[in-house]
Design a protein around this nucleic acid. Structure first.
Lengths: 195, 195, 195, 195
DNA sequence: TCCTAAGCGAGACGGTACGTCTTGTCTTCCA
DNA sequence: TGGAAGACAAGACGTACCGTCTCGCTTAGGA
């Protein structure tokens, strides 16, 4: 019998190479236009090896999605400002982008950003939905209530929209200012929905 | 010089054949899995003719988009309900989808719908922006005001979001109900922004 | 009723346009790579018009071949130098090329030259064959005699070969000198064949 | 490093399949009318594989040209018959064609034959030039001497001309007879040039 | 230390869709 | 009503990718 761990380490190395190759490619061009061979060349991995571990390109993407978005801040409830509670992620993410903006430069074109933000949107939608379950007023059901998953999708979608506009305009606003824009767009709705 | 109208009629016939072929194929299988040759065979059209008129399959889909989205209703100002003014498009579009839902079924896969809705989002963003210019309270500038283009993008984006959710869930709500969801999401914000 | 002559003139005009277009194209690129549409564009003629008058591209070429090669000099028998009789065309053609070399420049690339010389070869073959019939010694049959059509093809082929070599080498020899090369290649054979 | 021979064997198998498919198709229809897909179907080879190894149909034809032309015989000097020395290739090639004539029939159309014979002409020109260097009388330079490269081109060109005429006329002469024709065309010139 | 089986690279391969190109026909307009 | 314009069907072309596969090399563990 072979020791599992050892082979595992070797395999993990290969998987990492592939994930990193994909990430670096996404930073350069539209995900859709990336082709398996490009990933293989960059990762120095053989074609058959790729297909041993992943069904296709999408499978690879999904397997490594966390690497793309970085650690999401955890929500911390601040007593007294209950509406803000659900928007905990907003300012940190804006600030994160503000700090790393010049590190990324413009190498990640509009296309690369689209795919990254699409992922961000998906992840945010789920995170918000999860957090909302802990809020009894948001989670409760009623005939006229807007479905919670719509609200979480709404918040995530609007956030990404604002983020995109901010970036498109060269981040001329400070993180605090753009965060304010986002809150003024969503807070009225949140208040109404929770009442 | 050739009489424009006549040749036009011949060409229009070809375009129609192609659009109808695509629609009927969408009624049978996922949009993504339809290949050009199938369209050609069904439309009895030559390959070169197809590429004379359309860049690719997506172009054909978009070119026939009017059939899908219906004519965009014109906004009519109703005195006294000024907040609704800007959301004139909402209910008609929901109703249109509701009426044509079963003709399309779920056959138009995620990619096809993404293309369609992306187009819808763009068109709506511009339409709303245009209409907003006529509303003196929305158009006026101030330091703390949210940029009008953000508001129009926000409305269009949220609308498509709601539309998507509705379709994904099998349109279990009536058009009036889903329209209500959309309004409860956006009206509070609209009111706040205009004040 | 339309006056016949008028239509005729109109048609002739069209045929000329097409022939001239082909000629000017042959001067620019390989005949094989010329495509019907290019001829139509240059001649400002519609597709159906072309196919009304010619079966295909080759048909057009053949119909206008004389325009390409120019008038071939007529053989004049010089008494006493009977072997030269059959090579009457040689020096005049060399001289013709020498004179017009710089007018053509290098615009007619190797490909264009290949097709023109191929035509020259064909025409020469026929002209020589015709002239040979008038020479009783060349025309007479015998068991061991080389078929006259082989001789004419041989002369034309060798002539074009020498012409090509001359042109490829920048026409460093005078017309009289290169003509001498040609004669020294073919005269021994001619003498032997006629004996 | 990969063992060369192994992959080679696999590739050679594919190349063979393709060449054989082309040959068997040539035995059935005109070369010009054969399309790539037919070759693929018969060889059971994928389109991309074909284009990995060959630029196009002509490339495949030429790549298998050895099968067509047979091994070129090596010149062996026979003392005393010095003029024949340089024409060593003539009879063997005629005989080779004679033997394989009915296998090919007329199926290889004008274009296919043109390609083949053009190749043959080039190869012969070089071979003859090479052999001529060993003949001191042919190689020596003088003012009035015909350039050696003209002589070799002349011999190759004339040979292909005769070969073509022979084939066009259904090979009614025996190989020995057509070889005789070729020699009577070129030997007088050779003798004159060498003197 | 050797043996052996899995991981791996390299890349050939069959298959399929693409978008381009060209041909020869067909339809319609115009003079 | 015949000639011109050009839309069209047909289908071959060469390219791009895909996912499968075959082949030896490498390598690390257990014998």
């Amino acid at each position: 019998m072979r020791k599992i761990g050892t082979e595992d380490r070797r395999i993990q190395k290969t998987l990492s190479l592939l994930r990193e190759a994909l990430v670096s490619l996404i930073a350069e061009k539209r995900y859709d236009s990336i082709v398996v061979k490009e990933i293989l060349d960059r990762a120095n991995v053989g074609r058959s090896t790729f297909y041993t571990h992943f069904r296709d390109k999408d499978d690879l993407l999904i397997s490594g999605i966390q690497d793309l978005l970085g650690p999401m801040p955890s929500p911390t409830r601040t007593p007294g400002k209950s509406q803000d509670w659900i928007l905990w992620f907003s300012l940190p993410v804006f600030e994160h982008h503000y700090r790393h903006a010049h590190a990324w430069g413009d190498r990640i074109g509009p296309r690369g950003r689209a795919i990254l933000h699409e992922h961000l949107r998906r992840v945010l939608t789920e995170l918000i939905a999860e957090v909302m379950k802990k809020d009894f007023r948001m989670g409760r059901q009623s005939a006229r209530r807007i479905p919670p998953e719509v609200v979480s999708a709404y918040l995530a979608s609007t956030f990404v929209l604002v983020l995109n506009w901010w970036l498109d305009n060269g981040m001329r606003l400070q993180p605090g200012e753009i965060d304010d824009v986002f809150r003024r767009l969503t807070l009225p709705t949140l208040v109404a929905v929770r009442s």
